[in-house]
Simulated scan of single mutants.
Amino acid sequence: MAAIRRPESESVLTYRLVGVSAREEMVFKSIVGLLGGRTSQQWQVVETTEPDLLVIGFESADTLVPDIRAKVTFRRSTATGNDLQWPLRAGNVFEHLERAGEQILDLRQSRGREVAASFRLLRWPTQQLLRAHPGAVRLATLMASRPFAESELAQRSGCDLASCRRFLQAMEDSGFAERVESPRSEVVAIKEPVLKGLFARIRSRLGLPVTHSERE
């Protein structure tokens, strides 16, 4: 469980517990505390602010939670994907935190790009392509309404960012979608007139009118 240290600005991520019992909360927090220093990111619990990771207990396991970067759910049955099997084991919690941390940081980097590429659906993909990518029907349905960037598509669909990237790449390669570059925002600089003379600059600072002859 060797940690991979990242820049300090990226190393702290947050999580919030929803629908958990006092026992579940105590066990999860204890394991996260034991893993401190071993995970690639430092995890801190929050109560009110929007978290990077949502940890969902048994009481809210089937609740749809939109606009959360990542989530993990407790399950008493066999756990798959974003599920954590109860009783919790430190090794499983570690793997889920690492996976969630990588997904969250990838999403941050994607959002930070100056020019974000969006993908427009040209025609409905074949059954072969849909079967090859988990969640492809949901992804294609979202794209039917408007173009999506990969990070936004991941957030809206609930699929992980890597799966969305593979799906979008396959769609583009097969001619079912095309890349649309978002226009770069342009900042227009307004040149202020240069004032000649000490008195002209003083009048300008005081908000008094300046004659045309005093402007360059």
Rank of each mutant, 00 (worst) to 15 (best):
R89S: 12
R89Q: 14
A189G: 10
F167Q: 01
L122E: 02
E102H: 07
P134F: 02
E181G: 10
A140F: 06
R111M: 05
R123Q: 10
E181K: 15
S185T: 13
V187G: 06
S163K: 01
L121P: 08
H96P: 02
E150S: 09
F167W: 07
P193M: 13
R184P: 09
A140P: 05
G158E: 00
R99P: 02
E172M: 00
R184A: 15
D173T: 12
E114A: 14
G112H: 08
L107Y: 08
G91C: 12
S185I: 14
E114G: 12
T126N: 05
Q109P: 05
P147M: 04
R123C: 07
P134C: 02
C164L: 04
G112A: 13
R184L: 15
G91N: 12
F119I: 06
G158K: 01
L105R: 15
S145H: 14
R184N: 08
S151L: 04
Q109L: 13
V188M: 07
R165I: 03
L130C: 11
N92Y: 00
R156P: 02
E186L: 15
L153H: 08
F167Y: 13
W124R: 11
P183R: 13
L122Q: 01
F176E: 00
A149S: 15
F148P: 05
L153K: 06
E95I: 06
E192P: 08
Q128K: 10
R156I: 00
S145G: 08
A117Q: 11
C164P: 04
S182W: 03
Q127R: 12
L139P: 06
R184I: 12
G101H: 00
E178V: 10
S163Q: 04
H133A: 00
R165W: 04
S163H: 05
R108A: 12
I190W: 14
T141V: 07
D173A: 14
Q128T: 07
G175I: 06
A100R: 04
E98Q: 15
M143R: 11
R113C: 13
P125V: 10
E152S: 07
E98I: 07
S118P: 01
T126M: 09
L122A: 03
D160H: 02
P134A: 02
C164Y: 06
V180H: 00
Q127P: 03
R113Y: 10
G158C: 04
E98R: 08
R99D: 05
A140D: 01
T141P: 05
S182K: 12
R138C: 04
L121A: 11
H133I: 10
A100L: 06
T141N: 12
P134I: 00
L129D: 01
W124V: 04
P193S: 14
V93A: 09
E152Q: 11
R166Q: 11
R165H: 09
H96T: 13
V137R: 15
L161H: 14
K191S: 13
W124A: 05
A117N: 10
A162V: 11
A100Q: 05
S151D: 12
E98D: 11
R179H: 02
E181T: 15
T126E: 05
Q169P: 00
P147R: 01
A149W: 09
V93K: 09
L153V: 01
E181M: 15
E178K: 08
A90C: 03
L97C: 05
R166H: 10
C164S: 04
L153D: 01
G158P: 00
L97K: 03
P125A: 11
L153P: 09
A140Q: 03
